[in-house]
Design a protein around this nucleic acid. Structure first.
Lengths: 246, 246
DNA sequence: CCGCCGCCTAAGCGGCTGCTCAGCAACCGT
DNA sequence: ACGGTTGCTGAGCAGCCGCTTAGGCGGCGG
């Protein structure tokens, strides 16, 4: 009962306050870079601290190598406190994974709708997706690489979300090919390759590196445009009116 | 003592019989596709079976979720037998990781030297690297995604090998830019992106899929050539004399 | 002021973990 | 025929795992 309360709060933060969550994400992304605080409005304070601790621990050592004692002590609590807010260790991973995947789908959807031409839409999607994987690389690492530690039914739900992401990207590629803007021999394979490129950023990105998330997003957007055979130099990130290239 | 014997045998298989190993790899790649038998000439038979069992178990569930009892029973032995051939469970992972990374470096080196023009060299490298990740995806998954379960000193050694791979690829890109064949704004970043693309194949590839390893290698080689701004349609895999394009 | 309730801890339970060890069977050169 | 080496097993140890339980503390409505 008490455990269920914590879980539902997370759910509420993602469904009821969806609009706010988006706004908050934009704000964070602009200001760029405190710690991983994508979990702004999660349930009681303790539940959020536990979730954040779990994200860090899972990202560092992986789900199976992380102990509940480790998570609890990172959050400054006793091991038993974890079970007041979450039923099991796996549910912690599930919440992280679900919220992260929902955010992924939203990022791709919004970026994919933020422009008119397929090239601009593709560039915006890659730019935003890569930026998220770099900026929130701790969260993203857990989201992208720990999913097969999930229980069967949770896993199935997450896989469905991942398919959504793939479909969104494939849709953009199909539009580009149909419009004659892209030249792609294998749309499904290419969509997969683009996703690979973006996702893998979470694996190697470190905060102290030479490139900022924005720079990597920009670089990758360019690479992807060339991959699909589109002419170079797209517009700016948002409909900003500032053409510089060409 | 006894444990050390097993470890050394693996080492011998990679250093003394290096030339044979290469030949055998080529043979397997051509015939394409039994189970993961990249471990052809490892020490006594039992040590090889244990290694193969460990590869499968690590790939399925991850290093930390795999028990020594699981590995042993897959190899048809008692848990204690493992410690006759390997000192610890981690050493098993280390051997897998080391041999796999050495093979990666060799694949990239040979493919990178198998042609003259940077475009052909890049295409050959990507084609071979992707093919390995698809064909041997079980091994590759462990090699690429379980390395942070390694002990500190083993990890450092593996990271050095990974840097070698990156340097090889970067070298090809630099040659191409110097020759005016490639147009790349950020060589390091692009090299990383190309590696990402290849490595990530091990994450999503399944044996029953619609595409063969060769087709994926071909597709990805084309994508990468466009990424670096090179003209399309390169020559065949080995110096085969058959020009078809351009 | 009381009694209740949400949040937390100390202690600990059963079970599984990586790993060890004594012993044994099969094979070896002599 | 035989002592020794090699490869393996059955049993088991110490320690850590996820998770539970009983109880306490502080704030809040009445």
């Amino acid at each position: 009962m008490a455990a269920e309360t914590g879980a539902e709060s997370v759910e509420a933060a993602e469904s009821a306050d969806a609009a706010d969550a988006v706004k908050e994400t934009r704000g964070d992304a602009d200001g760029a870079g405190g710690p991983d605080d994508s979990w702004g409005e999660v349930a009681p304070d303790a539940a959020r601290r536990l979730l954040l601790a779990a994200v860090e621990a899972f990202a560092e050592r992986g789900f199976h190598a992380t102990t509940t004692r480790d998570i609890a002590s990172r959050a400054g609590m006793s091991p038993a406190a974890l079970y007041i807010h979450y039923r099991t260790k796996e549910e912690l991973l599930y919440q992280i994974s679900r919220v992260g995947h929902e955010r992924s789908v939203r990022i791709l959807t919004e970026a994919g709708n933020s422009a008119v031409t397929p090239a601009d839409r593709l560039a915006a999607a890659v730019r935003a997706f890569v930026r998220w994987h770099a900026e929130r690389h701790t969260t993203a690492r857990v989201v992208q690489y720990e999913l097969n530690a999930l229980a069967e039914e949770h896993y199935a739900e997450i896989v469905a979300l991942r398919r959504r992401s793939e479909e969104i990207l494939r849709g953009i590629l199909e539009d580009g090919v149909a419009a004659g803007d892209f030249t792609v021999p294998d749309i499904r394979g290419t969509a997969l390759a683009v996703l690979s490129l973006c996702i893998d950023v979470a694996r190697w990105f470190r905060s102290g590196g030479t490139r900022t998330p924005e720079e990597i997003g920009e670089l990758y957007a360019g690479l992807v445009l060339r991959m699909v055979g589109a002419p170079a130099a797209p517009a700016a990130e948002t409909a900003d009116g500032a053409d510089r290239g060409a």
